[in-house]
Design a protein around this nucleic acid. Structure first.
Length: 264
DNA sequence: ATGGTAGCGTAGCTA
């Protein structure tokens, strides 16, 4: 089973690139973040034409939005709200083979890494705390689970282009890393990226739109993650970061798709 | 130290 996750930054604007992703990688399941569209306007027809007849979409006007698209049946589709907000950041579905899948979009957190001065940063930290509590309560090493998406945090030294220069930049601050690590430990999650790519190698999934040349400066961050429960570790068969997608024309997303192959 | 780009929707918010 091949599963891909992508922060698409508008599914309507980038539908042609989504179809290209489908043609080039033939995933069984596609998880999206930042779809930026209400459910009634989600472009399901074009996606169903490619064989993805099962969709669980959870979007809102202009901001956020997550989705799970599949050519395998989806059951037990659900959504969760965090921090008392209905802002469309978490979609859940069950895949064949007793696999529970979560597509998640963690709040970005704004620019100032201070929860007192910056409510967006406080929201991000609270979101992580609440998810850690929930994952801890229901944690079960024997259950097959996948949690993936744009976590908006690059926790390791080599998840950013410069650990030193990123210390006080939102996405790589100590408090965020502490919260994300606590979430990972509470849920007993195994990081698929670092299962395949050693921690001393650079690993990026996002490059800013603001760079003059993203490829030359290569100031990336590892913001998009795929985590699995211990029960799925023996099934891990492959992992790819589709770096080339950062240059897809016209109008690439600032995030690239990340995929995992599972031998179930 | 600053500003740089992008999407939505058509001003200003969010990233």
């Amino acid at each position: 089973m091949r599963i891909v996750t992508w922060n698409i930054n508008s599914v309507r604007l980038r539908l042609p690139l989504l179809l290209r992703l489908i043609d080039e990688t033939a995933p069984d399941v596609i998880c999206l973040q930042e779809t930026k569209v209400v459910d009634d306007s989600f472009p399901m027809a074009a996606i169903a034409e490619r064989g993805y007849n099962f969709g669980h979409v959870h979007g809102m006007k202009s901001y956020n939005g997550v989705a799970i698209l599949s050519r395998l049946p989806l059951t037990d589709c659900a959504r969760r709200n965090w921090c008392g907000r209905e802002d469309c950041r978490h979609a859940i579905a069950e895949l064949p083979g007793d696999v529970e899948l979560h597509s998640v979009y963690v709040p970005s957190g704004g620019d100032i890494p201070d929860p007192v001065a910056n409510p967006k940063f406080a929201h991000k930290l609270q979101f992580l705390d609440e998810m850690a509590g929930w994952c801890g309560e229901r944690q079960d090493p024997a259950r097959r689970r996948i949690m993936l998406g744009d976590f908006n945090i690059a926790p390791l030294e080599h998840d950013v282009w410069s650990h030193k220069q990123m210390q006080d930049v939102v996405s790589h601050t100590a408090i965020e890393i502490e919260k994300l690590t606590a979430l990972q430990q509470a849920g007993n999650w195994v990081d698929v990226g670092r299962h395949f790519v050693p921690a001393n190698e650079k690993l990026y999934t996002w490059w800013s739109y603001r760079a003059q040349d993203w490829n030359v400066s290569n100031r990336g961050r590892h913001l998009d993650h795929i985590w699995v429960s211990p029960a799925l570790v023996p099934a891990l068969a492959g992992y790819q970061v589709l770096r080339d997608a950062r240059g897809w024309e016209p109008k690439p997303s600032d995030h690239v798709p990340v995929l995992v192959d599972l031998a179930l």
